[in-house]
Computed example of a mutant assay.
Amino acid sequence: MKLSFYTYFCVCFSIILLLNCSKNDFDSQYIQKTYVEFPSKHIHIVIPYNQQPPYNLHVPIQIFGTSLTTEDSIKIHSKNDWLIANIDYTCEHIKRIATQTLHDSVSLSVASSKFYNNTLYSIDLEITSFGNQIEVSKNNNSCKVSFIKESFSQFFSGTYSCFETSTNSTYEVTFRTLSTQSNKIMNQNFWDFPESGQEVEYIFSLDEQTVEIPEAYFTDKLGNTYTVKGSGTYTLDGNFIVDFFMYLANGDLYQSGRHIFTKL
């Protein structure tokens, strides 16, 4: 019985040892090659509102395994049922990969002939082997690149740094968009002292690059209610300046100043 158990143990141990050796041999062979792939099967890109066509997109690729000792190339195929290659868009067909490269990108240029704001588009890309050194990973050899150009209101929404001249203070504010088709945004932290849920509306003129706070009521955390209004200008880097006025219920001016909003 003891001999049988000992024999069984030796056989199992030998099998495990052989399996480990095989795995190590496989790993050793695996890392001796250079592989290329997309970081994921789906990449989403948002084109800023102020970017002018053609829209130059950069789709990341990654190289892993053994470092390249000499320059090599890969081939990229593209497909879309709505956008026509070399007319509506162009894709980098042959990509040169330099030695020691770990991260690079494939250039994708989209014309404006069929392109509309706030509309989602996608182009399918696939990497195939072209040179002698680089092999294509089977994990992410293809990728769906989705892209959309943000609307005007989306461009001016988000987090801003606000410098307030009347109090010489700086604080963060968040603007939310009412609709992607709207030129109105809501300040969720007006005067850095709003009652919960209080927002102030800002209306942007698309033609004159001006901003207006239409006259409205605003209540602070202490329950005091003011009439607020203001006007200013914006630039297409996402920043804007607004002169504001706050009046008491009796019509007296309580505070006025300038808010300088810098996009974060």
Rank of each mutant, 00 (worst) to 15 (best):
S14I: 12
T34C: 13
I47M: 02
I43N: 02
L18P: 00
Y49F: 14
Y55E: 03
P39G: 09
N24I: 14
Y49R: 05
E37F: 00
I16A: 12
Y30G: 02
Q51E: 11
Y35A: 02
Q51T: 09
Y49H: 06
S22H: 08
D25V: 05
Y49A: 02
V46A: 12
T34L: 09
Y55S: 02
S14T: 15
E37G: 02
H42N: 13
Y55V: 08
Y30W: 09
Q52C: 02
F26E: 13
I15Y: 08
K41T: 14
Y35L: 11
L17H: 03
P53W: 02
I43A: 01
N50L: 03
I43T: 08
I15E: 07
Y55D: 01
L17E: 04
I43V: 14
N20W: 04
P39A: 08
I16R: 00
K33V: 06
P48H: 06
C21V: 04
Q29D: 15
C21F: 09
E37S: 09
Y49W: 14
I43E: 03
N24Y: 13
S22T: 12
P54K: 04
S22M: 13
S40G: 11
S28D: 11
K33P: 01
N24L: 15
Y55P: 01
Q51C: 05
I45S: 02
F38Y: 04
N50F: 08
K41A: 11
V46I: 15
V36S: 01
F38C: 03
N50H: 13
S28I: 07
H42F: 08
S22V: 12
I45L: 15
Y35N: 01
V36P: 00
C21M: 11
F26D: 08
Q32G: 04
Q52E: 13
Q32N: 15
P53D: 03
S40A: 14
S22P: 00
Q29H: 10
N24V: 11
Y55T: 04
H42E: 12
P48M: 05
C21I: 05
I47L: 03
N20Q: 09
L18D: 01
S22I: 15
K41H: 08
H44C: 04
P53I: 04
L18M: 06
E37Y: 03
F26I: 10
I43G: 00
N20D: 06
